[in-house]
Write a protein that binds this DNA or RNA. Structure first.
Lengths: 229, 229
DNA sequence: GTCTATATACGGATAGAC
DNA sequence: GTCTATCCGTATATAGAC
């Protein structure tokens, strides 16, 4: 009906949302000031409080958006690049490495940063953070299950636990890289994971029931080229 | 010479340092206010700025203390509990789980929290954070090397990378547990790591050069009892 | 070394005209 | 829906007597 009005409304709200997303990522939730957000969004205080109840409310909107954009913005492009489930996982990790490098090792995972910063009393926020982690791990878990179906991983491994491990590797790697000011600890973390995966993939019992490394049908070391030293 | 004066001086400084340590851990660096620190330390603003240049300066002192206390306060008690290098690693992880539970899953690793919070421009702080990570990993690496010497881990594994992986597992596990409000993701992360270790330990070539699980001389599943479901 | 009082800037949020 | 002006609390840091 009143499409024009609605469009304009979305636009300002969107600018604020984008500015908040960026600044929460770059400076953290507390350090990102309202004035800064408004300036970057080219909006005024009045507009902000027309669309959002308060600062926490916009953080909730930011986290909501991250959850919705997991596939469209993060995973789909990577999934499109390769169908190999194991390679997908390591390409996903490489994506974070890329972001890390592009930002001088300052900004890694926006979810992780917020997760360690905001007070435990903000229960809604923490529920949303958990939902984001959950979606990410579900995608990795699906890759692992597929690898299992292809008999590249032993049927005995717990994919849920392994997916959780992968997320921890990413978050822990990003965290360390930030303090070191370089990608080395991120790379070492990922390579540590690769060692584990390589071993797990070498222990798939083949049809005859013997253990061996023979069923490593495809390699995924291609991605390793993106990891230094 | 003037021992009394020095003793008093250290005492107030110490109270401030302790209060700052606690509050940075509980609320983060930015959210922990000077007034709060001073109240908990039972000290006044004047005393604070007599001992420290500013807030950042006391954070530096806190991180310095963490680095010095790694063995005396964290590792020595754990190392004393067992000599098994692999078990030591998992007991170290269990220690963080314990802290997590005791604080309702709010406070995990104080170093990690600060690492993701403080601005990249605080280079001295980041150097100290890296030094803390470095010390922690060196200790884990030493355990891994020992396990390697005992031929429980293949000589081919890279202990540096594996130690880095262990730190990431801890930090990533703590981070997730905080948002979930329970220990499950921490446990899953650790169990994911255990799956990897179990496999690695099952692939040590024995003296005859054959691969097998036979050389798993000691079990370390004792610690698993502390991990739920 | 410790105390109180205070400077000064900035935080998030609101009021009310348009 | 957007604008400007502003409230009021809190932030870190300082001054200067004791």
């Amino acid at each position: 009906m009143n499409a024009t009005v609605a469009t304009n409304a979305i636009s300002t709200r969107q600018r604020i949302l984008t500015a908040a997303t960026e600044l929460f990522h770059e400076k953290g939730y507390t350090a990102a000031g309202m004035a800064e957000i408004l300036e970057r969004a080219q909006a005024n205080s009045g507009s902000f409080y027309y669309f959002f109840r308060n600062k926490e409310d916009v953080l909730a909107a930011v986290l909501d958006r991250y959850e919705k954009m997991l596939y469209p913005e993060l995973l789909d492009p990577i999934w499109k690049a390769t169908k190999d489930p194991i390679e997908r996982i390591f390409r996903l990790l490489a994506k974070y490495r890329e972001l890390l490098c592009l930002t001088n090792f300052s900004y890694g995972c926006p979810i992780g940063r917020i997760a360690l910063e905001v007070d435990a009393s903000m229960t809604k926020i923490h529920r949303q953070l958990a939902a984001n982690f959950e979606g990410w791990k579900a995608a990795v878990k699906q890759c692992l299950r597929e690898a299992q179906k292809e008999r590249r991983l032993p049927a005995s491994v717990d994919c849920q636990q392994l997916a959780c491990l992968v997320l921890s590797v990413m978050e822990g790697g990003v965290m360390q890289a930030r303090s070191y000011g370089n990608a080395r600890p991120f790379d070492e973390s990922v390579k540590g994971l690769q060692q584990c995966f390589a071993t797990l993939m070498g222990t798939v019992p083949n049809r005859l029931g013997r253990r061996g490394r023979s069923r490593r049908r495809r390699t995924w070391k291609g991605i390793t080229g993106q990891l230094q030293s």
